[in-house]
């Protein structure tokens, strides 16, 4: 549900970095989204397509790197990925829980930009031209 404010924030960050670099448009955005954040990549894309219209980021490809959750067992130190919908239990020593090492990420990693606006009508880049 909260993908809308998240996407607004992504667009703000991307626009600011693109403008600071003097870029004419943004062609791709690389996001890192951890499993424990609860954000749904499809919804981010949906809102992004709506919100980015008439901005230099219109038509940019969203590339979402979804990081799985990773937990280090507090007892034996083994690192494992919890199974969705099951209690967090170390597969080696059966201790519960542990320290979360990954899965809470939520950031814009990088953007790809072009310095001239050579977009043909209709938005997305023709992959043949790259």
């Amino acid at each position: 549900m909260h993908e809308l404010p998240i996407t607004q924030s992504v667009l703000e960050i991307v626009s600011r970095h693109a403008a600071a670099a003097g870029a004419a448009r943004v062609t791709a955005i690389h996001l890192v989204v951890g499993e424990f954040t609860g954000f749904v990549p499809d919804s981010i894309q949906f809102y992004f397509d709506l919100l980015s219209q008439d901005t230099p980021a219109a038509g940019a490809t969203l590339v979402i790197d979804r990081r799985p959750g990773s937990v280090r067992c507090a007892r034996c130190g083994h690192t494992y990925q919890p199974t969705d919908g099951q209690i967090w239990m170390c597969p080696v020593c059966a201790a519960l829980g542990g320290e979360v090492l990954a899965g809470k990420e939520l950031f814009v990693e990088s953007i790809e930009v072009a310095y001239t606006d050579d977009r043909t009508q209709g938005g997305r880049e023709d992959p043949e031209r790259q």
Binding site: A23, F107, S110, V113
Partner: peptide
Amino acid sequence: MTELKVEEKILS
């Protein structure tokens, strides 16, 4: 095409 590092938290 130029890639720019951003590394900014979305909820910053």
